[in-house]
Amino acid sequence: MTDPAPTAGTRLAGTATSGSALVDLIPSLPKVVLHDHLDGGLRPQTVLELADAVGHPLPAQDADALADWFQQAADSGSLVRYLETFDHTIAVMQTPEALARVAKEAVLDLAADGVVYAEQRWAPEQHLQRGMSLPETVEAVQAGIDAGIAEAAARGQVIRVGQLVTAMRHADRWREIADLAVAYRGAGVVGFDIAGAEDGFPPDRHLEVWHFLAENDFPVTIHAGEAAGVPSIAQAVHLGQADRIGHGVRIVEDIAFGTDSDGSPLATLGSLAHWVRDHQIPLEVCPVSNLQTGATEARTIAEHPITRLKELDFAVTLNTDNRLMSRTSMSHEMTRLVTEAGWTLDDLADVTVTAAWGAFVHHDERRAIVDDLVLPGYQTVEGALR
């Protein structure tokens, strides 16, 4: 695909293929992840070792048991309870060495899963408990990213990674963090985000932040449509001027699903749903995480809105959110969509290409990701399936 705009319906040369043969090849597919939290993707063994070094108590004392605890705690169906699991990961990420290690391991784990482009989002303000300054946190994470990219290259794995600097909604340090993000543009930071408790902390709390970022031509993604509904997405898009929407699955609340006179499926979009689709604003959808937090009424991957939204030509991208808490990976997310929702190779290519065109890098760099890394990998897998 060489179209410079994200669009649904990527089609490879051959037959759309699904099933067990495709599942076996998913690990080898090139992947793009736009919504992956650095503090939600630690290796359980790393959490244990870092916690021991700083004397932080944990709810389990071996890697397997700790992995079980994170997943079970996150399976509550409540975003608030889900967010409480981060108390442990953030507690062990309070030194430059710890931040660099976590960032390096994240890059290596993503590269091993076939990810060729990733954006790691995290909140620098949460990592100051042991004396680091905000700039020092960003530089420590970048050191880890650089080390991870170099080690992955030595293993023959190509990956590019950018930082998404996040402000916590409830802390009201938005402008300070926005200043930090812009200051480190060109030094690893590719965009700005707000995260945390969505309901009750809307973008209109600090309108000047969005004006500042727009005046500096700085990319923005905003968590919206996860714990709050259509009004939250509307503020993200219209006030926050978001280039992408973090999650965004509750846009389905602005769509009426039914049947026409012939009994065929019918979807009637509200004005906001039309706006999001017309402007092809990428939705950073995280199916496994959404089931855990109760972001949608869906209880299974087959019921998750991601498939309907993709069929309606929304700019859908597939993401992991928090690999530790959800015990997931991009390969795992893809596998579940293939086995439980009937996705094909074309469907996986579609969301990957859409994500690449939605990356917070320049146009020529996006094109190179699509043309040099994504499509050749999918064509290779397609050939193996013939």
Rank of each mutant, 00 (worst) to 15 (best):
Q126N: 14
D313E: 11
A384C: 08
D146S: 13
W275S: 10
G225H: 00
H127V: 10
G77H: 05
R169S: 07
D36N: 15
H211Q: 15
A197L: 11
P203R: 02
Y82I: 11
V165W: 00
G148S: 09
A355P: 05
I369V: 15
S76N: 11
E105V: 11
N216R: 15
T95R: 12
L272S: 03
L348S: 03
G229I: 03
W275K: 06
Y378D: 02
R185T: 12
A21W: 03
R160C: 04
G40H: 08
T300V: 12
H304G: 01
Y117C: 02
T335F: 01
R250F: 01
T259P: 03
E297N: 06
L83S: 09
H279T: 13
I149T: 09
R169Y: 03
R173H: 14
W210K: 03
T15D: 12
L266K: 12
D52N: 12
S18Y: 02
P27K: 10
A197R: 12
H170A: 15
A51C: 12
G186H: 10
R43G: 10
G186D: 11
W275E: 12
S20P: 03
V252Y: 00
L42D: 07
H304A: 05
E303A: 13
A183R: 15
D278L: 10
T352F: 01
V102Y: 02
A315S: 13
P6H: 10
H56M: 14
A214T: 14
Q120K: 10
V161A: 07
T320D: 05
P231R: 04
G294T: 06
A236M: 00
A242H: 00
L213Y: 03
H304Q: 04
V161H: 01
D68G: 07
A73R: 14
G342E: 02
R277A: 07
G258R: 09
T7F: 11
A183F: 05
A355F: 06
R130N: 14
D52F: 07
A60W: 07
R160I: 05
D146I: 10
L29R: 03
Q129R: 14
E365G: 08
V190D: 01
T46Y: 03
A16L: 08
D87P: 04
T354W: 00
S76M: 11
R43V: 12
I149F: 02
R250A: 03
S331Q: 06
L99W: 05
P305W: 00
Q61M: 10
M132Y: 06
D113Y: 05
T339P: 01
E198A: 05
S78N: 12
D24E: 15
L25H: 06
Q120H: 13
F212Q: 06
P27H: 07
L134S: 08
M168F: 10
G200R: 06
H332R: 14
K104F: 06
Q241G: 10
D217E: 15
V249D: 00
D217S: 15
L83Q: 13
H206L: 06
E139N: 09
A98S: 14
E297G: 09
D254A: 04
G162R: 07
F218H: 08
E136A: 15
E119Q: 12
K104S: 13
V116L: 08
A13L: 12
T335N: 03
I222K: 00
I26L: 06
S261I: 13
S20T: 15
A13T: 14
A178G: 10
L25P: 01
L348T: 05
N216S: 11
